[in-house]
Write a protein that binds this DNA or RNA. Structure first.
Lengths: 327, 327
DNA sequence: TTGAAAGCGCTAACAC
DNA sequence: GTGTTAGCGCTTTCAA
């Protein structure tokens, strides 16, 4: 068995209470005692049992994150930042992958609830009411989704999408296809909102396609529909779909950007490695991940009068898949 | 506060002990009692507190996984499978990212040790002695690394690299550059082992370059060196480096595969989306991830006489970046 | 088959 | 400033 607080107490010739205090509230013990306890703890290699501590304090020192797909670099980008920031704050992190299934998303939060102080939730597919329901089980911070009363780390997708249309219009495009991600996804709604606003402003002719699975395969499928609609530019819901579109167009001998311009969204690392490199919108995932953890930690000892929702800026990255149309 | 075992006991008109038994050792209670308890538990939405249970059983119901880089799809591929398999077995999973730092890798395992029943360790940079040292802290399964006495989920990288050379030789290449990953990495050693064997067998002229950082930037840097060495084929340690090589060659106006053939390793999804698509070796990451969890779970209730090390097969994927050399 | 009670490792009153 | 003690939610003897 591992070394317990009792072993340390014995070794330092004090009571277990003093050891506990020396470790968690140093100001409550005499400096010399504290030193002695700390020395004993170090010699023994003592590590407090967090589960036992949690049982009594009600805090676990853990946070959770649930994401729809760990194969999607967008979410692992968030995850990486979340885990880094959490570790810095001395929290450990549980991950769960819902496999894009809303039912699983809710279930996973509930399952985690007992073991964490709060969770960062990336659940684009969950209904609002469901989100409120799971919010009852544990403290929640939403990532990339805004809901009244729930803290959130957001990214300005609408603004990014507006910039995409501004860019295409500037190049001379008038007829544009938008490849929808999942209809109910907050992310898709936001992107579409920015799109519609820009489209209306510029009087662009919009062909609204989909919804498609926000995956490579979805792009493969969407490409043919977009081509049939005879547009000069294809705006994909995200990079992965755009990559699928690019692959399909290449297979069909349709040149990008010669015959058609294509844009993605997210700025995944690998999207810049295609030839031509993808024009896309950079999402500040790392920043949002860090922010989410900060919000969560703040939320845990706040009176909840103020519900922070922080928006990080997106940025259009113009690369090789967009040029003026031929006709 | 959440609903406890006491609430259930009260509701079912039994003692807490009976509730506990009904939930964990059904055969010890009368069927009717059991039914009554289960009903009460369901009505109340009771979920046992795992921390409290762990305190007494010594098992946490959690496993950990530590990886060098959550931005690397290779590791998130493993992670996804690990988490899926763990959830299936009713385990929750902790993740930690060491940021490629061996010191952090060891520290993270120690930090996790108290909260998990075991950990899946992806630590290419850790020294053997360090691995044994952390193995003292908790049950370990190594991923993609073989060490006597420690269970491991392996992939036949050496075989995959041998197949790469066989392929290049068959195309007519005689002078090949190998771009090393980190020298001390087990993975690089394995790949190099397969390479050396094949090179010796075929009498290929090998230019051994590096080590380089196993990242996109490493490939950027390596490309120029490989070109200067005047080889007809470049074998990269992994796909990410190969992607860097491709980008750099494109920038320099060197055609692939016209002027030089390039191969990667790992078969990341996005490696198939470059133009031309990358010839590479598929690593069975999902399979290895699942296997790792299975091994860990088995290990937990085994007598440790048998140390399983399971090797999954790799597969050469020939795509567009390899052709016969011009000269 | 069930209940009473001890106790896992720890923190938080409450005494001193 | 420090020790004693109760008890967090649960499982597991030990009796009945």
């Amino acid at each position: 068995m591992a070394v317990t607080i009792r072993d340390v107490a014995r070794r330092a010739h004090v009571s277990v209470a003093t050891v506990s205090r020396a470790l968690t509230s140093p100001e409550l013990v005499r400096p010399e005692t504290r030193t002695r306890v700390l020395a004993a703890a170090t010699e023994l290699g003592y590590q407090p049992n967090r589960a036992a501590r949690g049982l009594i304090t009600g805090k676990t020192g853990n946070i959770g994150i649930v994401v729809p797909d760990l194969d999607n670099p967008f979410f692992t980008g968030v995850l990486k930042a979340v885990q880094a920031r959490a570790m810095q704050a001395d929290y450990a992190v549980f991950v769960a992958d819902s496999d894009e299934d809303p039912v699983a998303e809710a279930k996973l939060v509930h399952a985690m609830a007992k073991q964490v102080d709060g969770v960062v939730l990336c659940a684009p597919g969950l209904e609002d009411s469901q989100v409120y329901e799971v919010a009852g089980a544990t403290s929640l911070v939403l990532l990339n989704r805004r809901l009244p009363g729930v803290p959130a780390a957001l990214m300005d997708s609408a603004g990014g999408m507006h910039a995409v249309i501004d860019h295409l219009v500037a190049l001379g495009h008038h007829r544009v296809a938008y490849l929808n991600g999942p209809r109910t996804s907050w992310s898709n709604q936001e992107r579409r909102r920015g799109l519609m606003k820009a489209v209306a402003k510029h009087g662009v002719d919009l062909v609204d396609l989909g919804p498609f699975a926000p995956r490579y395969e979805g792009g493969l499928q969407a490409a043919d529909l977009a081509v049939a609609a005879d547009t000069t530019a294809i705006v994909a819901y995200n990079d992965i779909m755009a990559l699928g579109v690019l692959a399909r167009l290449r297979d069909r001998g349709i040149s990008v950007p010669g015959d058609v311009s294509v844009t993605g969204f997210d700025d995944l690392t690998y999207a810049s490695l295609c030839s031509p490199a993808l024009t896309t919108v950079a999402m500040p995932v790392a920043q949002a991940g860090r922010t989410a953890v900060n919000l969560l930690l703040d939320w845990l000892d706040s009176d909840h009068t103020d519900v922070p929702q922080i928006v990080a800026e997106t940025q259009l990255i113009v690369r090789g898949t967009t040029t003026p149309p031929k006709r």
